[in-house]
Design a protein around this nucleic acid. Structure first.
Length: 430
RNA sequence: UCCCUGGUAGCUCAAUGGCAGAGCAACCGGCUGUUAACCGGUGGGUUGUAGGUUCGAAUCCUACCCAGGGAGCCA
């Protein structure tokens, strides 16, 4: 008798099979037990009838508790009364371990409790569905780049100093000096792009900011492509293709999981290029027209981003921000040096910035001036400025926040559910 | 760091100055098609912590701790 996964039971109707899993729920009715069994791929109702199994097996069912592990044998049958449409008529049942009283019940729980039980919370249908969608998003992104000739380059996680010199970094002891956990692989990707043309990194990112909002984690994952010979327009084109490809892939491959989490997929279906593009100037005008007091030169807050995104059905690019609210390496606009060739992509439905990127400064004099203006330690950036000494070319790139993308595509109201074990300002357990 | 809200049984909540309560979970019993099954029964409490006001505090006051939401900062 061979083991089948619950997701494949439809192909085994009438056969006697083995299922290895856990008890999700149990109901009994005198001489019948209804066990809802899960195996990580799905859920199936198992019927244990007194007349169909040994007395020992039947009595054993009485002691089964929520999340007990077991191996059951039985015949797959289609039945309208069963949740999912199929059920298992049990012939043999072997408990492996009887679970202790399980903390996470099928009833309602509060966030604090669930976060403390995150290792067990992952077993619930909703959390498992989100993690499968996260996997699909990640694999969709990797396939997108791999199929377009990008080379995966792993950026270092331990770094000697800040990449951008602004945000708060986590520090750690590094022999007799201090190292910092990476907040971006971008500068290293610029070096790699000059070696290999089109590259990307995909790794964790760390920010020690004391942010307590539904959009922030202290540890999150980011994909950062970087391309030689590509300008701002080419950069935005790649972004809209990447985002559309990823959304369509999830719609095709994870329909069932989207149903499980009750995501309204109406607006996701239309996510296809081209995305609207507005300049920072136009965005400021748009905010003022919508009753938001906003002054040219400031950066957008969460609320401002939502107002802007609400004007469009699709994700929207906001490009050409003032240079002094962006990172030091953003290339100034040749006709208006006070603004730069940067672009952020704002997701619809209030999910905010999911991509930040732009064209980089490729001129040695300009990059040296910007490093001085930002009071960055010049020696630490020698390798970076070397890229402008030895065959500099126009180049662009961006960073896509995986968790924010997952939150948007899944329609979640908090980023903490998008990652298996979230790290927040005041939470590092489990 | 600042602002707002909250903390009562394992979990989710009620009790607003006067006997500490319910549903679920656990345990015992019943039921041959249940759908977060249902029905009957049992056990379960330092009301976040420390002070204070009061004849009397879960309830009012002060400080602290913890959590949630937001601001700033950011993807």
């Amino acid at each position: 008798m061979h083991t089948v996964s619950i997701s494949h039971v439809a192909q085994h109707v009438g056969e006697e099979v083995k299922i290895k899993g856990w008890v999700y729920n149990k109901r009994s009715s005198g001489s019948l037990f209804f066990l809802i069994i899960r195996d990580g791929t799905g859920f199936i109702q198992a019927i244990v009838a007194k007349d169909e199994v040994s007395d020992k097996d039947f009595q054993g069912c009485d002691g089964l508790t929520q999340e007990s592990s077991l191996v059951v044998c039985g015949v797959i049958k289609a039945d309208k009364r069963a949740p999912g449409g199929y059920e298992l008529l049990v012939t043999r049942i072997r408990p492996l371990q009887i679970a202790e009283e399980y903390p996470v019940s099928l009833k309602k729980h509060g966030v604090d409790f669930l976060m403390d039980q995150r290792h067990l919370w992952l077993r619930t249908p909703r959390q498992a569905a989100i993690l499968r969608i996260r996997h699909e998003i990640i694999s969709g992104i990797r396939d997108f780049f791999d199929n377009r000739g990008f080379i995966l380059i792993d950026a270092p996680i331990l770094t000697p100093s800040s990449c951008e010199g602004t945000t708060t970094l986590f520090s750690t002891d590094y022999f007799d000096s201090t190292a910092y956990l990476s907040q971006s692989g971008q500068l290293y990707m610029e070096a790699a792009a000059m070696a290999l043309g089109k590259v990307y990194c995909f790794g964790p990112t760390f920010r020690a900011e004391k942010s307590k909002t539904r959009r922030h984690l202290t540890e999150f994952w980011m994909v950062e492509p970087e391309m030689a010979w590509v300008d701002l327009d080419g950069n935005m084109e790649l972004q809209e293709e990447l985002v559309s490809h990823t959304v369509q892939r999830v719609l095709e491959e994870r329909k069932k999981d989207l149903e499980t989490i009750q995501r309204d997929i109406g607006r996701l279906k239309d996510i296809k290029p081209p995305f609207p593009r507005i300049s920072y100037d136009e965005a400021v005008e748009c905010l003022n027209k919508n009753g938001v007091q906003f002054e040219w030169g400031n950066d957008f807050g969460g609320g401002d981003e939502t107002v802007l995104a609400e004007q469009f059905e699709l994700p929207v690019f906001v490009h050409r921000y003032p240079s002094n609210i962006k990172a030091f390496y953003m290339k100034p606009d040749p006709v208006r040096p006070e603004i730069c060739l940067s672009a952020d992509l704002l997701a619809p439905e209030g999910y905010g910035e999911i991509i930040g990127g732009g064209q980089r400064i490729d001129d040695l004099e300009t990059i040296m001036r910007r490093i001085k203006e930002h009071s960055l330690p010049e020696e630490a950036y020698t390798w970076y400025t070397d890229l402008r000494r030895y065959g500099s070319v126009p180049h662009s790139g961006f960073g896509l926040g995986i968790e924010r993308a997952v939150a948007w595509i899944c329609g979640l109201d908090h980023i903490r559910e998008t990652i298996p074990f979230p790290r927040l300002m005041n939470r590092i357990y489990p």
